[in-house]
Amino acid sequence: MASSDPAQEPPPDGAVLVKHEDAVAVITLNRPHALNAITRDMASSYAHALRTADTDPRVRAIVVTGAGRGFCAGADLGVLNQGAEAIRAFVPPERDLPDLALRLTKPVIAAVNGPVAGIGFAYMLGSDIRYAARGASISTTFARLGLVAEYGLSWLLPRLVGTPWALELLLSGRTLDADEAARIGLVHHVTEPGEALAAALVYAKDLAANCAPSSLAAIKSQVYGDQDRTRQEALARTLKLMDASFDGPDLAEALAARRERRAPVFRTKE
């Protein structure tokens, strides 16, 4: 699951902001006047920011959020109103599609602070863990625009919430709130308004401080990779990974830290 070289890509522009809090990279979609609706350049910058964080040895977890009162309202309407060719040109190349976060080695946590729809919905589902603030509205919208289930959501959404709920949400394109989203398993945690980012950061910082980067990368690879393996294949692969981990320095460090009543100092993921 190694990432591509970010040096080959342009740096993020002002529409995507990156800052670091301890060992956590916080990536913010930054078009608050448009509820962070995505432009083509913004999609490229967001993908670049994710890859850069994934290859940065200082970073152990990633949080993504939106500036202002929205997470991401979907594709910029200026693109949609320009016709089919402009929309085709907007679709990111395969390596930059919203499932990029699932292909990274580091955990990605979404802090959904406000409205999310369309490609924003795909970005949210592309995160490994999702926090949402009460008052955030969540919608697929595709069917209401005469579109299909985009960006692989027909594969991913049933795996998150089950086929019946995936069909209900995709067919209707309706809006649901954070509490209903949590009830059906679409988001993991609901916070009070304005607190999603803070809660996501607490979770991310705990992962960064207390979990071995090698374990986080391996577990993420196991969970997503095993969806396309048989039970026997997954078990065989797990046994090999288990055997390798027994001789690894991280287990020895974790046990020593417990004996010495201190925080573990895990090696940076190679």
Rank of each mutant, 00 (worst) to 15 (best):
M1C: 04
A2I: 13
P6M: 10
P6N: 12
P12N: 11
D13I: 00
A15D: 13
V16N: 00
K19C: 14
R31L: 05
N36I: 05
R40A: 13
M42P: 00
A43C: 12
A43R: 04
A43I: 02
S44C: 10
S44V: 07
R51M: 11
D56Y: 06
R58M: 08
R58D: 15
V59T: 14
V64F: 02
T65N: 09
T65R: 06
A67D: 11
A67V: 06
G70Y: 01
F71G: 03
F71S: 00
C72V: 05
A75K: 00
D76Q: 03
D76K: 03
G78C: 04
L80F: 10
Q82T: 04
E85K: 13
A86K: 00
R88S: 11
F90Q: 04
F90N: 00
E94Y: 12
E94D: 15
L97K: 07
P98G: 08
A101I: 02
L102F: 09
T105Q: 15
P107F: 03
V108P: 07
I109P: 02
A110W: 04
A111M: 09
N113H: 09
P115R: 08
F121Q: 07
A122H: 06
L125F: 01
D128M: 04
D128K: 00
Y131R: 06
R134G: 09
A136D: 11
T141W: 04
F142S: 13
F142P: 01
R144Y: 08
L145Q: 13
Y151M: 03
L153S: 02
L153H: 03
L153E: 07
L156H: 10
L160K: 14
V161D: 01
A166P: 12
A166S: 15
E168Y: 11
R174N: 13
T175I: 11
L176T: 09
I184H: 03
G185E: 06
G185N: 06
L186K: 02
H188F: 03
H189M: 12
T191V: 10
G194E: 10
E195T: 02
A196C: 12
A196P: 09
A196Q: 02
A200Y: 03
A200N: 05
Y203W: 09
D206R: 14
D206F: 03
L207W: 12
A208R: 01
S214M: 05
A217G: 08
I219C: 03
K220R: 15
Q222T: 08
V223H: 05
Q232Y: 00
E233T: 05
A236D: 15
A236K: 10
K240G: 11
M242G: 02
A244F: 07
F246S: 08
F246Q: 07
G248S: 15
G248C: 08
D250K: 00
E253W: 06
E253Y: 04
L255D: 11
L255N: 08
A256W: 09
R259P: 04
E260L: 12
E260R: 05
R261V: 13
R261G: 11
R261P: 01
R262K: 15
V265F: 09
T268E: 14
E270Q: 13
